[in-house]
């Protein structure tokens, strides 16, 4: 259970980090703002509006923050020599990576939850109606997406040797997923494979591929869990009769994949290299 000691240290480090508190402050501020506006002006009746509004504002922020907080988690320790000090103690490299993942994921989850929970408390106090089940499910999805991005960025961090490269990689990931460069990849492949011309219709696999974007997966999962939030689709179209690649279970699977696999790959490289 030594990884738990690393995780606790990572959380303790975060608590001593002013940037983390700035993030928590920002999330809480957003929660207060949205909660107040909703409680003050929203018509009572449909209680899912608050979840939709918070999702719209916080989901992107939480995932970006997760990317930023995790991309230097391992490589920074390598550069500062902290890794040498840690590995002089009886920790394995797996415990260092696993513990750091758990710690960062906990920090991101706690910040997201702090922001998400302020809003309904305030809205309810102001007399608005909030469907709590929908709201909690939305919170869960946002947290899960945050954890997925921690996994992606931590894998990057464990695989690289310089923090400059990790930061550049994180920006690349931002372009890939947030600026949706990801969607263009299958198009490019199809274009080249078809002899530098687009075919009449896109093959089905391109649809599957596009839905592997963790942001789309988050959207798909939320749509499955809280169908009434359908109109809040920021990422990708939500179809009436969803094909399998738009299904909630597929979204969940994709998020879990991104949470686990990149970190495993990063660890695989980290474990094999000289310090």
């Amino acid at each position: 259970m030594r990884w738990l000691q690393i995780a606790r240290k990572d959380v303790a480090d975060a608590r001593r980090n002013r940037n983390v508190w700035l993030v928590v402050g920002l999330f809480v501020l957003i929660g207060v703002g949205v909660g107040y506006l909703y409680g003050d002006s929203a018509p009572s009746g449909d209680g899912t509006g608050l979840a939709g509004a918070m999702y719209l504002v916080l989901s992107a922020l939480v995932t970006i923050v997760a990317l930023m907080l995790a991309q230097n988690a391992v490589v920074e320790k390598d550069e500062s020599g902290e890794l040498t000090a840690l590995l002089g103690l009886p920790f394995s490299r797996a415990e260092v990576v696993g513990g750091t993942f758990a710690g960062r994921a906990a920090v991101v989850a706690a910040s997201a939850v702090a922001g998400m929970l302020v809003a309904p408390v305030l809205a309810l106090a102001l007399g608005a109606s909030v469907t709590l089940a929908d709201y909690l499910l939305t919170t869960l999805v946002v947290v899960l997406a945050g954890v997925a991005f921690v996994g992606i960025a931590l894998g990057l961090s464990a695989a690289t040797r310089s923090s400059t490269r990790a930061a550049a990689g994180a920006f690349g990931l931002f372009l890939l997923f947030f600026a949706q460069v990801w969607n263009l990849l299958p198009l490019a492949v199809v274009y080249v494979a078809n002899g530098f011309a687009f075919p009449e219709s896109q093959p089905t696999w391109t649809n599957w591929f596009v839905e592997l974007n963790p942001l789309y997966a988050m959207q798909n999962l939320l749509h499955g869990l809280v169908p009434r939030l359908t109109d809040m689709s920021m990422y990708g179209p939500v179809r009436e009769s969803a094909p399998a690649y738009d299904a909630a279970w597929f979204g969940l699977l994709v998020l879990l994949f991104w949470a686990v696999v990149p970190t495993l790959l990063g660890y695989w490289r980290f474990d094999r290299r000289d310090l």
Partner: peptide, 28 residues
């Protein structure tokens, strides 16, 4: 890991652990 459980190490090029105090280092 089993080796490092029984070995005390003062490595070359180490860095301090985050923002921990001296006592927290030793406790860790």
């Amino acid at each position: 890991e089993a080796i490092r459980e029984r070995v005390g190490v003062l490595p070359d090029g180490f860095g301090v652990l985050g923002r921990m105090t001296g006592r927290q280092h030793v406790e860790f």
